[in-house]
Amino acid sequence: MTFSQQELAEPDLSKSEPDLSDETGGRRIVRRGSWKFWVGIAICALFAIIAALGPLLAPNPNQTNSDGLQAPSLQHLLGTTNIGQDVLTQVIAGTTGSVIIGVVAGALTVVLSMIFGVGGAFLGGKWDEASSLLSNVFLVIPGLPLLIIVTDYVQSRDILVIAVVISLVSWAGAARVLRAQTLSVRSRDYVDAARVASESTWRIMLREILPNLMPIIASQFVFGALGAILAEAGLSFLGLGAPGGRSWGSILFFAQNAQAISLGAWWWFVPPGLCIAVLGAALGLINFSIDEQINPRLRTLAVLRPKAKRGGK
């Protein structure tokens, strides 16, 4: 066990000089480090634009031609697949699929977790116990196997159905987080003050509690979207994706099936893999920066002049 006075001192430093965050530019410290946010947003926006324009840029991704397994060239910027499909077109079409899945699953995760997390915690009593029980049950169900079973079971494996299934198995974690935060916000004085002012329950929920949950809801959305994109890629890679649908995962699946790696056709599997990694990283960056805003402990204070202490050495 180590027990240093440093540890004793630290919890107090924030409290001992509360004025620092007032007037004097303390507020600007908070905004620092948000480059993560903007980089993340920029990358996501880029992918969103590609996804939106996907049908125009790549109207017919399955079109084949005679040149199978061509390395990148001017004609096919990212080469072709074994049956002569243009990889770039495929990746663009896949972007549309993956982004739709991310957005739909993320949104659905938020909706479900708000119903069971925020709703339960706000109403309290039996509601809270019931919704906690439900989210706990969903939390311990192993996600991937359930996903495999459900996707195997549903008749129409549409891309939207996949998104719904993914969010069904993954909302519980978000619900737990939101529940905890709602309980904390609900017990704050200004909520009591609103009750003393005789505000209606709905208004308290919408005006007093929800705004203070927004950062967490946003972060859960981002987290849900990220998880869904990865999960879908995994499912598709295992061949359980939407058969007609296009996503980065399904490109990887076909590449794997055609033994692209042993054939050395890197242009076939690197671009979709990279897309997954880059979008994942961008969503992660957004999440980190939201986290930093919520949790002051993660904020790194900017030191303008890290000048050595006088007489330091």
């Binding site: 001192a9 630290e10 004025d19 000048k307 202490k309």
Partner: peptide
């Protein structure tokens, strides 16, 4: 609060953390 008395205590015990730094004396 905010008058610097705690900062002084941290300075004496050399527990100041950046961005706080002793600039003189």
């Amino acid at each position: 609060s905010g008058c610097g008395k705690s900062t002084l205590a941290y300075a004496v015990t050399r527990l100041l953390q950046p961005p706080a730094a002793i600039t003189g004396g």
